[in-house]
Amino acid sequence: MRLVGNLFAYVWSGRDNNCNRYVLARVLKDDRHVVIDPGHVTTPALREPGLQALRDEMESDGIDPDAIGLVLLTHCHPDHSEAASVIREETGALVAIHEAEAGIYSQFGGKVDLFLGEGNLDLGVESPVQLTVFHSPGHSPGHTTLYWPREKVLIAGDLIFYRSTGRVDLPGGNPEALRDSIARLSRLEIEYVLCGHPYGHSGIIEGGDEVRRNFEFLRTYLRF
């Protein structure tokens, strides 16, 4: 589903756990795409096809799934990152993740071509998509979120959900860091929060007012 510009959102519709997948289509050389959090290859409990579903959804939007040039991972958990290794192998795409996630990611068999950290990320040669990368720990130590100022889009990974936050009980989770990360991002001008999962909601929080209401809810709940 095209969300804004060349950003496509693929909300996970299976019954098992998997993440929402996002694609910046045809932004790189030779019309190659950037995939953000490709999710599971196959979901662990119900064996639902994750990567194949993404490929099918991309194709139905006219996006060639074999032309992926870059995979950005918000964090290393397999429900976000597992398919990255297969995509890397099959398409030659580069994989980027924060250095603090790289150790655990490699224990899952992942290979990291690029380290992702705080700063600017330009995707494309002529009139590139200009993103800002935020290191936003809490759910995991090297969790990152991607902000697209021009379109006021925040790709939030597992930091923020609709009326909820990412869990902090997994290894490396940290509630104080999570609160600080959310507080920091709440100051951005945002029209779309693209969450990592469709938990009781599509995970696409749309509209400045709705985004503010969500941050207000979290502010009360987290006291930042």
Binding site: G69, F115, L116, N120, D122, L123
Partner: peptide
């Protein structure tokens, strides 16, 4: 090569050990 692909910026650093 990365710039040519269209990936650049201060948020990206090569992990050459993997290259």
């Amino acid at each position: 090569a990365l710039r040519e692909l269209g990936v650049s910026g201060s948020a990206i650093r090569l992990n050459l050990e993997q290259s």
